[in-house]
Design a protein around this nucleic acid. Structure first.
Lengths: 344, 344
DNA sequence: CTGTTAGCGCATTCAG
DNA sequence: CTGAATGCGCTAACAG
């Protein structure tokens, strides 16, 4: 009982099947296949079925490289972030992926290791794909990067921070404001002797902004920091733990330490735990970010919560809502809030 | 003193500058520009300089969409991972970015939320870009995904796990082996009453493999688990903490609990800390992954370390070393090791 | 509703 | 060493 109809052989591995093959099998023109693949209406159902069947049988996958070239429509969005080891960036990426889910855009992602020259290379490489938009972290870029971004005419989102003037649109929160709020909150709680435990500012300008805000708050109250402990390199639980030990030795009078972020602060809590210090009576700790881990500590970490997921999501929404670059730069503030916790 | 030569106006924002414009300005043919932009040798230095200058002045950015179409060379590599909220995946991405740094490939990244249908869509979307390779997590794919992957003929790397037969190449470690090693190690240390604290297996098959390995090790010694505590949904410090409280109540005889991963285990440590339990005398805790956080706990977490960064890096190296899919599937074992710690 | 005709911007033969 | 021609695979007007 062998069927007599034309047997459709499965395509060889790697044999490229294009609109042409599909059109031949379905007995229609290439344009018709193209229309159908792009859900263009105005196609007879019967034709559509025939074409879809042929496409399925052949395992046809439309070539977006060709499609994008022909239509000049963008199908990619570039993302350039400093790193993935700081948990906040994966969180931003989650928001980006969530925002992208309802569109047909895909993300090309590069990391720079906080190196502006690498950022420049990444931006150049991504612009070559004619993306719908490019998302970056922060406002520090080389002049060449800035020039490329500007000339590209595409939408540019500077994420995380809103303390400078954006090229196009900035999405994030005010880190100086966060520092200020931290200081005022702790002063209101009665603290007077402040310490600061931080990591390298060269790489992390936003940590510097928060520090500045904190100092401003102290100055308002006629106070100033009693002690500093700053490590080289990136923030980490280990560094926070070590620096806390150091500051406790060098400046035992400090009542409360403000940390550059929650990773560092968790290190501080671990030091306190290991030493049997009572928090916040013997020593108070205040972080920044509102990481999940902080909430699950034996005593929840006092910190200032920001929403990194929202930053990524809003960034995508902004470019989806308005694909053309507007005449004047905009700022989208994703805010922050004090999380009282129990360590300060 | 106005120069008389032809003034080169800076291009308008968005005015597309192509090889054509550069060729016109530099007084050469488009082919010559193309050669130079691609570092092809066989070009006179003088010509090269003239062209480069023109390109720079015009702010020319080669269009990779067109380039890729014309040359049929791939410039992208696709990455499809379940999520970014589990820290291990950003770590894998770090390795991927590191591996990519020395190549001219860029990564298109999609997340699936552990949904095989979304994985299928992501794979389809990425294959449309004709990537050099596609990197996935695990071995569970829809038949359609498998078919596309197979027919694409490109390199396919299945990451994380090496407990099944790969389509092309698998890079990761044996999770069943890890579970086995965990059980044997703890039995050798004298533990006899085991509990298990885990998260949802439906989403995380590797957790299941580790569990199976653990049970096998217990069976070898004529033992079996005294207690289970499993939560719905993803792993988290909070869940680990809550389930630890539960298992301590329901099965107080348990000497040691094996956790599905370090996030859960850290939650267990926090519970112990909050309850004033002595680790490991009153209760012992063993994790999986070897996250940084575990090492900085007041008592370092006993766990089994894997190297996620290495998985990503090796995956990229594999495809760079051998761009053609080999005849027979391969396995790259990135290994694991016991980290003794102090909690078990 | 469907087919035909032109490119998209570049890389790649080939000639010179 | 350089230029002219051809086409990558697809979409976008146009006709019909």
């Amino acid at each position: 009982m062998k069927p007599t109809g034309p047997k459709q052989r499965l395509p060889d591995r790697k044999s490229k099947v294009t609109v042409r093959e599909v059109a031949l099998v379905a007995q229609v023109s290439e344009s018709t296949v193209s229309r159908i693949m792009r859900n263009s209406s105005l196609v007879a159902d019967e034709t559509r079925d025939r074409v879809m069947e042929a496409a399925r049988a052949l395992g046809y996958v439309p070539n977006r490289i060709a499609g994008s070239l022909a239509s000049l429509d963008p199908f990619l969005v570039g993302v350039v972030i400093p790193s993935l080891s700081n948990i906040v960036f994966p969180e931003v990426l989650q928001g980006i992926q969530a925002g992208l889910a309802r569109s047909d855009l895909q993300a090309v992602i590069s990391t720079t290791d906080y190196d502006m020259a690498r950022e420049e290379a990444a931006v150049r490489g991504i612009l070559a794909w004619k993306p719908a938009a490019i998302l970056l972290a922060g406002f520090d870029h080389t002049v060449a990067t800035r020039r490329m971004l500007d000339q590209s005419g595409i939408r540019v989102v500077e994420m995380m921070d809103i303390d400078s003037s954006p090229i196009d649109v900035a999405v994030g929160t005010s880190h100086r404001g966060a520092g200020l709020m931290t200081g005022r909150h702790l002063i209101a709680k009665g603290y007077r002797r402040f310490g600061y435990v931080g990591h390298d500012w060269a790489a992390d300008r936003r940590a510097r902004l928060r520090y500045d805000g904190l100092c401003a708050a102290l100055a308002e109250a006629g106070l100033s920091l009693c002690a500093h402990a700053i490590c080289e390199g990136a923030s980490s639980v280990g560094a926070g733990r070590a620096l806390t030990a150091q500051i406790r030795t060098e400046a035992p009078q400090v009542e409360v330490a403000v940390y550059s972020n929650d990773d560092m602060a968790v290190g501080g809590v671990f030091h306190a735990l290991a030493q049997g210090l009572r928090l916040p009576e013997d020593f108070a700790i205040f972080g920044f970010n509102g990481l999940d881990i902080g909430r699950e500590l034996p005593q929840p970490l006092s910190t200032l919560r920001t929403n990194r997921f929202l930053i990524g999501q809003r960034a995508i929404e902004a470019i989806l809502d308005q694909p053309e670059r507007p005449a004047t730069p905009a700022v989208i503030d994703t805010g922050f809030e004090i999380f009282p916790g129990a360590t300060a």
